[in-house]
Design a protein around this nucleic acid. Structure first.
Lengths: 125, 125
DNA sequence: CCAACTGTGTTATTCGAGTAGTACAGTTCT
DNA sequence: AGAACTGTACTACTCGAATAACACAGTTGG
């Protein structure tokens, strides 16, 4: 069963996109294995304190991307082949690192300084 | 005069917040010096292709934070003491690095891998 | 002075995200 | 079979972001 313990909606990004991102990152990290069961829409919405429709929208998006399999009446399961997992990893990690690097660089931070800051943040978490 | 050449609204983040962030990063990088003149609301909205009210909302927020000085009828100028600039730098750089580190770490990326990715993204931009 | 700018404020409208409640159909298990 | 779940669909509503079109007051330069 996929655990949503470390997840709380925050910031201005739409909640359903945050849910999608959370699941994707969980898959990439290996924390969410292939075939893992997803909590029901109602269960999950209660756990996260958000509306069932918001959860449904996230699930719909995950299903459209082929990461989730849902059948009416039955439970939902994560379906992610190793190939798709690698593609996801590339998509998320590279874009994430690039976006962070771009913003830091834009502020006049040197590469050495950036590495130092990243390393420091790494420890503190 | 503050240049908005490298700026285009994108993503789900509200445009007025993106404008605020752009100006803040410009100040931190030194690209926008203290006392620099800001394009008028109408001029800026035409340049960015957004509504004057959206620009006004961003300017209002910057003024509330003491980064911008506006007088009715007169032009607007950036007003940022060295101390405030350092505070901004800390706020943006540290939080940016921390957010990047958190996301990468969450995906099971090692620190060495993260540094490698950041370095690569640094060159490519 | 006066025309052309500047910032500011107001009202109305559109649009998407999120909330709320309900209904329906398929499955799973006893 | 029947109860209890499951996903799915739908409508109505609130709220904030963004747009649009103004009106008003202060500043500036010819």
């Amino acid at each position: 069963m996929v655990s949503f313990e470390g997840f709380r909606p925050e910031g201005s990004e739409p909640i359903y996109l945050q849910i999608v991102g959370f699941v994707k990152r969980g898959i990439v990290s290996g924390e969410i294995p292939d075939g893992d069961e997803l909590p029901s829409r109602r269960m999950l919405s209660a756990l996260l304190g958000v509306n069932p429709n918001t959860v449904q929208k996230a699930c719909r998006m995950l299903e459209d991307e082929g990461i989730l399999v849902s059948h009416a009446g039955a439970k939902s399961y994560v379906a992610c082949t190793p190939a798709k997992r690698e593609a996801l990893r590339g998509e998320l990690v590279v874009s994430g690192a690039a976006a962070a690097a771009l913003k830091l660089k834009e502020m006049g931070v040197t590469l050495e300084e950036a590495i130092k800051l990243i390393s420091k943040a790494w420890e503190e978490d």
